[in-house]
Simulated scan of single mutants.
Amino acid sequence: MRVLVATEETQGDRADDYTWATPGELVMFGVICATDLRGTGRGCGCGRAFAGLHSERATTTAQVAEWPSSLDDVVLAFRDSLARGGWLDFGGTEEEVHAVVVEAVMEVLLVADRYPAGTVIGTDRGRQYVRQPAAAR
């Protein structure tokens, strides 16, 4: 299965790039603040970020990667990260909590499935774009 992982490839190609995530860690799409959603250009940059599951740090670049683990392992990694961040403490039932986790996982898997492994992508307020195509084999 293809997932998105943090990468330093293409970092610095854009003046507004940043990376604090650990290269190779799973990433997800983060929450976007209201200022970034408005697109005024004066936001914090969260609208261009992927969130690292382990480091809990952000990056503007992610790479599509073949992931050797099972879907259950990916769901568990997302659940752990979301729980550590307090995102699952909304008083929902176990089914509702599970649905939040699965939605976050599926969002990443659906995007990763659009591109060949090795493709470096960026994101901008929910729209993804290719920063570097996968190398030819």
Rank of each mutant, 00 (worst) to 15 (best):
Thr60Trp: 04
Arg137Val: 14
Glu107Thr: 12
Thr61Leu: 00
Glu9Ala: 13
Glu56Arg: 14
Leu26Cys: 06
Ala21Asn: 09
Gly39Thr: 12
Met1Phe: 03
Thr19Lys: 10
Ala112Met: 14
Glu103Tyr: 08
Cys46Ser: 12
Ser55Arg: 03
Arg48Cys: 05
Arg79Thr: 06
Ala136Gly: 13
Trp67Leu: 08
Ile32Lys: 11
Tyr18His: 12
Leu110Met: 14
Glu56His: 15
Glu25His: 10
Ala65Asn: 05
Ala58Gly: 14
Val5Asn: 01
Val5Glu: 06
Thr10Asn: 04
Gly86Ile: 05
Thr60Met: 03
Gln11His: 11
Leu109Tyr: 12
Ser70Cys: 05
Gly86Tyr: 02
Asp73Gln: 09
Val105Tyr: 04
Glu25Trp: 04
Gly47Val: 12
Pro133Leu: 08
Val64Ile: 12
Ala58Val: 13
Arg131Val: 07
Asp73Arg: 02
Gly39Asn: 13
Phe50Gln: 02
Gly45Cys: 10
Asp17Arg: 05
Thr60Gly: 00
Ala6Glu: 02
Val64Phe: 03
Glu96Leu: 11
Val105Ser: 04
Met106Val: 13
Leu26Asn: 00
Ser69Gln: 11
Phe29Pro: 04
Gly52Val: 02
Arg48Tyr: 10
Pro68Phe: 04
Ala104Leu: 07
Phe29Lys: 09
Glu95Ile: 09
Glu56Thr: 09
Arg131Gln: 07
Arg38Ser: 14
Ser69Cys: 09
Val100Gly: 00
Arg125Gly: 11
Val74Lys: 00
Glu66Val: 05
Tyr18Cys: 08
Asp124Thr: 02
Arg131Ser: 03
Leu110Cys: 10
Arg14Glu: 10
Gly30His: 09
Asp72Ala: 10
Ala65Lys: 04
Phe90His: 08
Val31Leu: 14
Arg42Asn: 14
Gly122Leu: 03
Arg84Ser: 14
Val130Asn: 06
Arg127Ser: 13
Ala21Tyr: 06
Thr10Asp: 03
Ala83Met: 12
Ala49Cys: 13
Pro68Gln: 07
Thr123Leu: 09
Val105Cys: 07
Phe29His: 02
Leu76Phe: 00
Ala77Pro: 02
Gln63Leu: 08
Glu8Lys: 07
Ala136Met: 13
Cys33His: 15
Arg125Ile: 13
Arg48Glu: 14
Gln132Cys: 08
Glu107Val: 09
Gly85Arg: 10
Ala83Asp: 15
Glu9Tyr: 07
Ser81Tyr: 07
Gly91Lys: 01
Thr93Ile: 12
Arg42Ser: 15
Arg137Pro: 14
Ile121Lys: 02
